[in-house]
Amino acid sequence: MTMDILVLGGAHIDRRGRISGETVPGASNPGTWIEEPGGGAFNAARALSRLGLDIAMITPRGGDGLGERVGEAARDAGIDDRPFTFLDRATPSYTAILERDGNLVIGFADMELYRLFTPRRLQIKAVRAAFEDAKSVLVDANLPAETLAAIAARARQLNRPLAAIAISPAKVGHYASCLEGLDYLFLNRAEAAVVAAAEADHPSKWPDLLRKAGLKGGVVTHGAGPVVAFAGMEAWILQPPPLAAIADVTGAGDSLAAGVLFGLSRRQDLGQALRHGVALAGLTLLSPHATVENLDADMLATALRQVPQPSRL
């Protein structure tokens, strides 16, 4: 096995408008605009590569200038980029409007191209070889449900750990037929409620609810509240340290997933890996970008000193 993680999922363009004053629905709001490459899987892949892991990425992409920007960003981050390029299609995009404090007002996803990443593409010789070369696999719910199920089956066949990012309450249902094939699913509380078909009255209740839904491991975030992680019958809860100011919430969940996976790659238990995820998410919340562009292991180690130890549940 020659690579640490094979990443399959979203790699597209993120556009974010941030309102400068109080949000006024139904009216023109002054603000600022940023456009950059993003996507759940891609955000996590860039963070993992900057932390020193060997990352390969397979994603669908359009044959346009936006697709070229995504490819350039992947190369800049040190990722082994292996896209499926559809020359006659547009690269997917995600547009978000944020309040002054960085919280999401509304998002709009133009993701039709991802539907073309069908299960049969996993049969391509180069893709089969990538699975065999990888120590583990990371996906996100931008891919179609049938493709995610096929990826889970391939990972199980090769005995490769499989982690997944929920992306949104609307898309987390793409994992419905393969929940038992996921080793870890990274979710926020709204996404967890969709998977569990129930709402936890306290963060500590999520492990039991998600186990009953068929999930064997996962991490659930609650905004600035406690983060809960579980694997099998073990579970941990951790209160993230307060942040002085949040620049942008975009990508924080993807960074948390990357931090946890980085810790696990260093043979830490899930409780300690969770600390790495919280530290990296905090760094991302302080950044105006969806990833921390100057991230390295030393920066993460410094941030980790501010993160408390988790408690077992």
Rank of each mutant, 00 (worst) to 15 (best):
P226G: 06
S20L: 11
Y184E: 04
K125Q: 14
T147W: 12
A41Y: 09
T85V: 13
P241K: 12
G71S: 11
I5F: 07
R50N: 06
L274K: 03
I165K: 03
L51V: 01
I55V: 13
S168I: 02
D140I: 08
E99A: 09
T95R: 04
P37N: 05
S93A: 08
L286K: 15
A129M: 11
T85A: 01
L286P: 00
I19N: 01
G253C: 09
A96H: 01
T284I: 05
R69C: 03
R100N: 14
L87C: 01
G232Q: 12
G17W: 05
N43H: 05
L66C: 06
A130G: 03
L280G: 03
D110I: 01
A301N: 11
F186I: 12
G259Y: 13
L256M: 14
G259L: 08
L138D: 09
N29A: 01
V307K: 04
D248K: 13
G173K: 13
A297P: 00
F84P: 00
A129R: 15
L116A: 14
G10L: 06
A279C: 05
L104S: 01
A303G: 02
A279W: 04
A290M: 04
A141Y: 12
G217P: 05
V139L: 12
G26L: 04
V7I: 05
F117D: 06
H222N: 13
S255N: 15
S49P: 04
D80H: 07
T284W: 08
G253P: 05
I167Q: 10
Q309I: 09
A301E: 13
G17M: 07
A41F: 08
S287R: 10
D269T: 05
M233S: 15
S265D: 13
H276V: 00
L261C: 08
V227Q: 02
P144A: 14
G259A: 11
A279K: 02
R15F: 03
A213W: 04
T85H: 01
G277T: 04
W236S: 10
A273G: 09
D4K: 07
L313M: 12
H174P: 00
T2H: 14
G10K: 04
H276R: 08
H289S: 09
L113G: 00
A244S: 14
A197Y: 03
V24A: 12
A257F: 10
S311C: 03
D254V: 07
G181A: 13
S49F: 05
A96F: 01
A231V: 07
F230M: 02
F42D: 04
Q123E: 15
K135W: 07
N142T: 07
E191D: 10
Y175N: 06
S265A: 15
N142W: 10
P308N: 06
L182I: 07
A109Y: 01
A200L: 06
A170G: 02
A166M: 05
G282T: 08
S49H: 08
S287Q: 09
R267D: 13
S265M: 13
V307D: 03
